[in-house]
Structures are given as structure tokens and as C-alpha cells.
Design a protein around this nucleic acid. Structure first.
Lengths: 205, 205
DNA sequence: TAGATTGTTAATCGATTAACAATC
DNA sequence: TAGATTGTTAATCGATTAACAATC
């Protein structure tokens, strides 16, 4: 069965809510609904896609549910990540504490700027982009973050795909095509701001 | 009529596609579909929410459509933006070229770290967070970007709202509640990676 | 047992797609 | 005029919500 991608996003939200919940042993879908602003019905439905984690009449055991959600989301173990582009944004991502906290470790960083290559940031030595394929293949890394300028995005993403990368988080304002079997998630920061200006224009009018 | 927010996201996609289209005078929904991977039917529908921009039998005049989309999205004029948090991520956003290119100008930046306050980055002097309300009220800025640590997010966002900010792009991994009339868009970077690991886990299995 | 809450099915709602009359 | 393509309505599809039997 095809599970809606909005369900997956919500599973992350549920998981975050449970993390900030230290004391309780059980939580009902209604209580979780109060925290997350998703409907209780929807929470039960989303969870039911993956199994039966609750006890009728009682609710969901918090610790068990946390563990199950970690498994479902794939964060029950750490992931190695490659970063391409060590400019302002790339360097900020390299330093981002939130990744390590969730088990995401940036293991390799690449750039094409000779002034950056060889420098060490956050304990990671910036490598020549030309070594991309070799390093990724030998380290068997499956996911990459792209923080290169727009004009370089297409080529970089092609190279990542041909190096065996299966999942890409792309911050370049471009929407390159990738073969099926490769997941590309685009975050275009200007586009996000545009959604806000669309809204602003309306409330102001 | 309530227009689906996915339509707005697509309007941004169409607009970007048109920008990269220098030569043509007219474009059909089918041609735009080829560029954007949205269906022709959907493109016509999305545009029809806002007016009649095409000519039956011919297609859409590219320049006119660009101008209309700019108006709809609210990017026909520049917007001033406030940035809160001048750490790694905040500084990267301050330096981000893509914003200026789309007419978004970060006019003020704030932090609570005395080592950062007073420093100038990208021509912007970092100000004390305590001056937030005063500066925002007097400059009549409507939108803000939040790049503070998780534990500070709630308070900062409350302060932005009470200063009159109507639209917030939040990078802190938190989902604070805001009153209706204020638009909050959360970008949680770890959550985005989780969507990728969910996918990776499935293709690998 | 009585009360509470899950898991699941059916009903509703909304968004996408298909079809086609209008028209350039 | 004939061909092409829009704008719009109707049909389909999928996701959310409501309801309730099962069960702790």
C-alpha cells in the first residue's frame, strides 16, 4: 500500500512530541492530538499503517511507540551523510547541531574551490569535488546534502546519482530530474519566502 | 474561495520555469508541463484561480504571465525582512544571494550574544535582541526569519508576533503556536532528513 | 463490570485529472 | 476555415474525518 507522504511528515511530528514528553507512560491519540494539532483520528490512522502499537482503552505506551517510530522513520541507527558545497550555507549545515542529535553524521564534505579544499571545518577536511565518486563509492554512503550554487546543482546531482547516492536533500534553487529509486527533496529558501509574501499580500489587502 | 496551498507552491515552480525561458513569446500549458512535471490540466486550473491569462488556441504570453505570477506571489516589489539569530545558520542566511535576487532584503539582524552584538556582517550590524520590538515597530517590517536554538524559539516567536510581524520562516526545530492572522512556516532540517531515511530504509529493504 | 480508547470501516471532503465547449 | 489550446465543468481519485465494534 502507498502511504501518503504527509503521513510520514506527521510521524516525525509525533515522534518529536513524544521526545518532549518525559513523564507519562501512556498517551492517548487525543492527548497526542493536543500536542501536535493533528486530529486524533488521523494519528490513529497514520500509526495503523505500520502496525498495532496501542492498547484499546489505555492508549499508546510512550516508550514503545517512540521505539517503533524510530524504526519506521529509519532513525533507530545513525546515518552517514555527504555534503557537497562548503560555502556559507554548507558550512552552517556542517556545524548544525540538530543533525548529530538525530543521528545524522556528515562524514565527508566536498567543494571545487581550491581555497577551501584541504581546510578543516568541524573536524571534517574539505575534499576536492573530483574525489566525490571515489570517496562515496568506497564509503558506501547513501545520502547527500547539496548546498552548491544553482548553476552547479544539476551536474553535482548527476554525479551523486552515478556514485550510488539514493537520497538527496537539495538546497540549490533548481529541480533537477533524478531516476526512480533516487529520492530528491528540494528546499528552495526563496520559494518558502514567496509562500509567506503570498500570504502577507492577502492579509494586508 | 480557498486556494490549496499546494497550488501556491506550484505557482512558484511555474514562475521559476518561466524565468529560465528567455526566448519564447508564448507557452502552452503542455510545454510548461514538460518543464515542471506538473500536469497541463493542473497548470491551467492553478492559473484559473487567479484570472484568465491565456489565449485559447495560442497559449500564455510569457512576459505577461511572469508579471501576473509576480503580482500573485507578492514579489512584484521588494520585501524587508528581519533575521533573529546570527549563529552559523543565521549568518549563512544573511549572506544568501538567492534572497536578494528575489527581492528579499534582510534589513535587521538580532542576537542575544554580546560577542556578536555590534559586529557587522554583510553590511548589517547585529543588534541586541532587546531592541527587537522597538526596531521592528519603527521600521514596519512584516516578515522575519528565525534561526535561533530550539529552546529560544518559542519566546522569540512570541516577541516577533507581539512586535507586529505577520509572517515567519522558522528554522528552529520547534512548532510554536501563533495566532490566526500570523503565518508560520517551519523548516526543520532534521525532519527533512528523516523523510529521506524513511525512503532509504524502504528501497534498501 | 463500566469506562475508555484503539483499530478499522464507511462517509465526507478536497484536490487532481479528464473532457470538451468556447475561441483564438 | 481548420487546428490548437484555453477556461471550466464533471468525473475520479485520494486523503481526512466520523463512527463504532472490539477490547483493554
Amino acid at each position: 500500500m502507498q502511504i501518503p507522504s504527509s503521513s510520514i511528515t506527521r510521524l516525525s511530528i509525533y515522534y518529536r512530541a513524544l521526545l518532549s514528553l518525559k513523564d507519562a507512560a501512556l498517551i492517548s491519540s487525543q492527548e497526542l492530538s493536543d500536542f501536535t494539532e493533528c486530529s486524533a483520528s488521523q494519528i490513529r490512522k497514520d500509526l495503523a499503517y505500520f502496525g498495532q502499537f496501542g492498547r484499546p482503552g489505555c492508549g499508546y505506551p510512550v516508550e514503545d511507540l517512540k521505539r517503533e517510530l524510530k524504526k519506521i522513520l529509519g532513525v533507530d541507527k545513525d546515518w552517514d551523510v555527504a555534503l557537497v558545497g562548503a560555502g556559507n550555507l554548507g558550512s552552517a549545515l556542517l556545524a548544525y547541531k540538530g543533525f548529530k542529535g538525530q543521528g545524522f553524521n556528515i562524514k565527508h564534505a566536498f567543494d571545487n574551490d581550491t581555497r577551501k579544499i584541504g581546510k578543516v571545518k568541524q573536524g571534517i577536511r574539505i575534499r576536492d569535488i573530483e574525489d566525490l565518486k571515489k570517496v562515496i563509492k568506497s564509503s558506501k554512503i547513501g545520502m547527500a546534502i547539496v548546498a552548491v550554487p544553482q548553476e552547479a546543482a544539476r551536474e553535482i546531482i548527476d554525479r551523486l546519482v552515478s556514485s550510488g547516492i539514493k537520497a538527496i536533500l537539495n538546497f540549490a534553487p533548481a529541480r533537477p530530474k533524478v531516476p526512480t529509486g533516487v529520492e530528491l527533496l528540494n528546499i528552495d529558501l526563496s520559494m518558502e519566502l514567496e509562500r509567506l509574501t503570498y500570504f502577507l499580500k492577502r492579509v494586508r489587502a
